[in-house]
């Protein structure tokens, strides 16, 4: 297995949308193994998307099972051709990115999502995710659309917090 080179901003290729995977073959699975190796080599990344290593196909890996404070999760996931079919709620959380060194920012994401995808053999998958895992999935799916979290950063002074306060 190989640790692949991660594209970092301002690399224009990070803006390129990815294409669906059509052949679920050994080459795909070998790439996924390299992608996982690359994720693990980074600084505590809970996810990685294929375009981050210059392969513009809809493939991503998620694993939020090892956070400091445990969060609801489905363990280690390889998601091919993922699509979010349902969004619910919204919340602010802090994000960084392997492709954006030395910067973190607050981003609004849906609290709960339902997601369909395929496994590395083309079998259908379906998950209901919430909280941190849902956030990670949305962050990685953005990469497949050529979007980075810095395209979505909100001010720390955003009024979401105040609205929450007054809802009590």
């Amino acid at each position: 297995m190989t640790v692949l080179e991660i594209l970092t901003i301002p690399d224009e290729r990070l803006k390129q949308p990815s294409a669906p995977v059509e052949s679920f073959d050994d080459e795909l699975r070998a790439f996924i193994a390299d992608l996982e190796e690359t994720r693990r080599a980074g600084p505590g990344a809970v996810g990685i998307a294929a375009p981050q290593v210059g392969r513009f196909q809809c493939i991503l890996i998620l694993d939020v099972s090892k956070t400091k404070k445990p969060v609801p999760n489905h363990g280690h996931l390889v998601l091919v051709n993922p699509e979010i079919s349902h969004w619910e709620g919204y919340e602010i959380g802090r994000e960084g990115c392997l492709s954006v060194p030395d910067y973190t920012g607050n981003v609004i994401r849906a609290t709960r999502i339902r997601l369909k995808a395929q496994d590395p053999f083309g079998n259908p998958l379906e998950y209901a995710m919430e909280g941190f895992e849902a956030r990670a999935a949305q962050h990685e799916l953005d990469h497949l659309d050529g979007l980075l979290f810095i395209d979505r950063v909100v001010s720390r002074r955003t009024d979401l917090f105040r609205r929450k306060v007054y809802q009590k």
Binding site: V46, G47, L62, K68, K69, V71, E95, L98, T104, F132
Partner: peptide
């Protein structure tokens, strides 16, 4: 509350 920064 904890801030868990998501890196991905």
């Amino acid at each position: 509350s904890p801030i868990e920064t998501l890196i991905g």
